[in-house]
Design a protein around this nucleic acid. Structure first.
Length: 290
DNA sequence: CGATTAACCTGGAAGC
DNA sequence: TGCTTCCAGGTTAATC
């Protein structure tokens, strides 16, 4: 489900309930998601206070008072639901908001914080998500982050760097932008949107991008992600914020999921076209993306 | 090393 | 109504 803007939206929804709160109990409904949960998962979390909640690419990182960090990835369908208990609410009185699927609730964190008790449920239909525990000092060197590419909303993204990363690479531009070892956080939607805004064909060999085009692309990547974060992400099928509300950036899509519709570029008579690249749908305007 | 493809898993929508 | 096929915000192991 989630690309960088959706994960950042989830982070902002979880932060008030998580940071400063102590994990009093962890319910684990199965032994694995995409991967097995780490050894003694419940024991290593129980009693820990969450001191910070950050995001790197599509990963969430909860720093724990004992020195470890809980790493969470949402895969395609992972979602969190926060339920805050009122002062008078008794155990068992929590209830699910709309759209929640108890059948796929895999992990439940019980928290005790300044605002009282809360419960955070991780639901993941397809189970492509995963969780891991690593020491905070070892995060950068961990298997999840050691070879991760640049953060697209960080200072390092520039046309100059993109062109350098693309040098000698004949894979399609779209595949290169989806490669998390090059640039980390983009997914199918925002790659299609950024390439459209930059006027670049998704099937161009990456190395064919000129300095000027790379500069344009760096700008549209930053723009589309920034706008999507501000809109609370995109809701296609099942993405919801931690409070159950929905993102609305999908109303701003210019090519994604708009096959057959007219191109929105002023003066362009083209039609949005879908084709398959590396097994995934690519949406683009063959007329104004060159 | 670089490029491409299949696989992981479930459910909703579309086609017959 | 039911059965089949295709498709989905991601990553990764296994190929050539």
């Amino acid at each position: 489900m989630p690309e960088l803007p959706e994960v950042e939206t989830v982070r902002r929804g979880l932060e008030p309930a998580m940071v400063g709160a102590t994990i009093t109990e962890v319910e684990l409904r199965r032994a694995d998601l995409r991967f097995a949960f780490p050894e003694r998962f419940r024991e290593r979390l129980t009693g820990q206070m969450i001191t910070a909640l950050s995001r790197r690419a599509k990963y969430l990182l909860a720093d724990l008072s004992g020195g470890e960090a809980l790493i969470m990835h949402l895969g395609m369908t992972g979602r969190f639901l926060v339920e805050q208990a009122g002062a008078s609410v008794q155990p068992g009185e929590f209830h699910h908001e709309h759209g929640s699927l108890p059948a796929h609730d895999h992990v439940v964190f019980h928290l005790e914080g300044q605002q009282g008790r809360s419960r955070i449920t991780y639901n993941d239909v397809r189970r492509f998500g995963f969780m891991d525990l690593v020491s905070q000092s070892g995060i950068a060197g961990s298997k999840h982050f050691a070879r991760m590419g640049i953060e697209p909303l960080g200072n390092e993204l520039s046309g100059e760097l993109l062109q350098k990363l693309f040098a000698g690479r004949f894979a399609p531009l779209k595949a290169m932008l989806l490669d998390q070892k090059i640039i980390a956080g983009l997914g199918n939607i925002y790659v299609c949107e950024a390439l459209f805004r930059a006027g670049l064909r998704p099937d161009r060999p990456a190395a064919s991008v000129s300095a000027g085009e790379a500069e344009r692309l760096a700008g549209t990547i930053r723009d589309v992600l920034t706008e999507a974060v501000a809109a609370g992400g995109s809701t296609l099928r099942d993405f919801a914020h931690a409070d159950g509300s929905l993102g609305y950036f999908q109303h701003t899509f210019r090519v994604y999921d708009r096959e057959g519709e007219p191109c929105v570029t002023p003066g362009c008579k083209g039609t949005v076209t879908r084709f398959v690249q590396s097994g995934r749908s690519t949406f683009h305007c063959p007329t104004c993306q060159v």
